[in-house]
């Protein structure tokens, strides 16, 4: 595949420690312009730290690279101008109104036509009627949409979202993702960290990070294929109750109930089949299935913990 697009993020060998804890290790990542990249990994894996280094909020201990063609070490201010960063915690002012928060952002970025922009943003959000309501009184979903609107008010080229939908209901999440796709459609590059698998599947591609290291990269299909994980689905009376018993067998990495069924997977197909052989008889029905992204991530997490 030819390198058709330019890179919005191109960083190499990033390292960051807090005290003696090394949070990010030799991280190298490239993100093409106009793509939505899902940034996944367990809690404390260094996702937030990486996003902060890319947008200039943290200085890497070592490493180099560019963001939007600008040096992440020297041009932090210019990067900030063209980047929207939505923090994990709501970072607008609770005691200012919705309109005041947007106006503040517009002023801080030194935008022209501020009134117009704020009015348009409010209209797009559907918050024109509630413009004078304190931002702190909004529900979680609305807060996230408002934060997103504030982030893109200055029309950034790169949008970094740190777990933007944590604690937001499914309908609001879907609306949020529709907006992200619309923004990407206009050419914005988006990097979004998340724990939700359905959200990972809505990304163009995925970067999986664990314990500060990038361990999987590509589209969802590619990441699943790379894992070489074999998975079976068992159905039948009492299948879901076999999880503990089967999970304890060597060669089985995980056995997780899904409703009345059980998913059993392991990295070595032969060993897995040997392990499940005693139960492979009626009334249980076994079918080999494609592992889900979640299966793959748990597998990756287990594997990187073993190397830790």
């Amino acid at each position: 595949m030819a390198e058709a697009r330019r890179l919005a993020i191109d960083v190499e060998g990033l390292n960051k420690s807090f005290g003696d804890k090394r949070v990010v290790k030799d991280l190298t990542i490239k993100v093409e312009e106009g793509r939505i990249t899902g940034f996944l990994g367990p809690n404390g894996s260094g996702k937030t730290t990486t996003l902060r280094m890319i947008c200039g909020l943290l200085t890497p201990d070592s490493g180099s690279g560019t963001c939007l063609g600008l040096d992440i070490l020297k041009d932090a201010r210019r990067i900030k101008r063209q980047t929207g960063y939505m923090t994990q915690k709501f970072s607008l002012y609770d005691d200012l109104t919705i309109a005041e928060n947007l106006m503040f952002t517009a002023r801080v970025y030194g935008l022209d036509r501020r009134r117009e922009r704020v009015r348009d943003a409010l209209e797009q959000l559907g918050l024109t009627q509630r413009r004078d309501q304190a931002a702190g009184t909004l529900s979680g979903g609305w807060k996230q949409r408002l934060a997103l609107a504030a982030c893109v008010l200055h029309e950034p080229k790169l949008l970094l979202l740190d777990e933007p939908t944590a604690g937001v209901d499914p309908k609001a999440r879907r609306a949020f993702w529709d907006e992200i796709h619309a923004l990407a459609g206009e050419g914005m590059t988006v990097m979004v960290s998340t724990h939700y698998m359905d959200e990972a599947e809505r990304c163009h591609d995925i970067a999986y990070i664990a314990y500060g290291e990038l361990i999987a990269r590509g589209t969802a299909e590619e990441v699943i294929a790379q894992s070489k994980l074999a998975t079976f689905r068992v159905e039948g009376p009492g299948a879901d109750r076999l999880a503990r018993e089967i999970g304890a067998r060597p060669g089985v990495e995980m056995a997780a109930p899904f409703g009345m069924a059980l998913h059993v997977s392991g990295p070595d197909r032969g060993a897995l089949e040997a392990a499940i052989a005693p139960w492979r008889k009626p009334p249980l029905v076994w079918t080999e299935i494609e592992p889900t992204l979640e299966d793959v991530f748990i597998h990756l997490m287990n594997r990187s913990k073993d190397n830790w």
Binding site: L57, R77, T87, K89, S91, T105
Partner: peptide, 13 residues
């Protein structure tokens, strides 16, 4: 403490 500092620092101010 409220986390608004992170948002403020992410701007060019």
């Amino acid at each position: 403490e409220r986390g608004t500092m992170e948002g403020l620092l992410a701007t060019p101010v």
